[in-house]
């Protein structure tokens, strides 16, 4: 009786197989693209302000990311080449870099001493540009078109000062 039983497998459902295989292939392709993007993103070199100053000659006209914290009193709104612009200076380590940002407006977190990531390149200060309020004014500025604000890892209540004062008996 066992010879009469056809136990050969039926043909698989092709649609389902191709759908699943297609998803696996697409996922692998997207992961490859993401890794490429990450490597490429990393190739947009990141420099802290002091490194950017030290390597200004080597950087030349290259686009890179600059990290630093805006100096207190340095942020001034104005115009540059017919567009609204922010003039300020950032510090990292011992060096200060003057910045003209002409990209989209930063978030409300943009303020002195809160680190920022800027994208752009070194430029010589053109004639007619006012001196930077608290800047190094060395004839160079960082022409930024992208500004990201990096908040820190500390979380404090907005009214923490009042709590501290209350704990000390108030004023």
């Amino acid at each position: 009786m066992s010879e009469a039983v056809a136990l050969t497998p039926r043909p698989p459902r092709r649609g389902r197989r191709w759908w699943s295989t297609g998803v696996v292939v697409v996922v692998l392709a997207v992961i490859a693209i993401l890794l490429f993007s990450l490597v490429r993103g990393a190739s947009l070199f990141v420099f802290e302000a002091d490194e950017a100053v030290q390597q200004r000659d080597e950087l030349g006209d290259d686009r890179f990311r600059l990290i630093g914290s805006p100096l207190d009193g340095s942020i001034v709104e104005g115009e540059f080449e017919g567009r609204s612009a922010l003039y300020f200076s950032v510090r990292f380590g011992e060096s200060v870099v003057d910045v003209i940002h002409t990209g989209s407006d930063p978030t409300a977190l943009f303020q002195p001493d809160v680190p920022v990531f800027l994208e752009g390149r070194w430029q010589a200060v053109p004639d007619g540009v006012d001196r930077f309020a608290e800047g190094v004014n060395d004839g160079w500025y960082f022409a930024s078109d992208t500004l990201r604000v990096k908040h820190d890892e500390d979380y404090r209540d907005d009214n923490q000062d009042r709590i501290s004062e209350a704990e000390q008996g108030g004023r």
């Binding site: 197989r17 699943s20 998803v23 696996v24 996922v27 993401l34 890794l35």
Partner: peptide, 22 residues
């Protein structure tokens, strides 16, 4: 951000692999 997205895609791939007939 990018490595979290890669983790998501790896596990989406894992789930797709589990659906492959065989």
């Amino acid at each position: 951000l990018v490595t979290t997205l890669i983790l998501l895609l790896l596990f989406v791939g894992y789930l797709a692999l589990r659906q492959v007939p065989g």
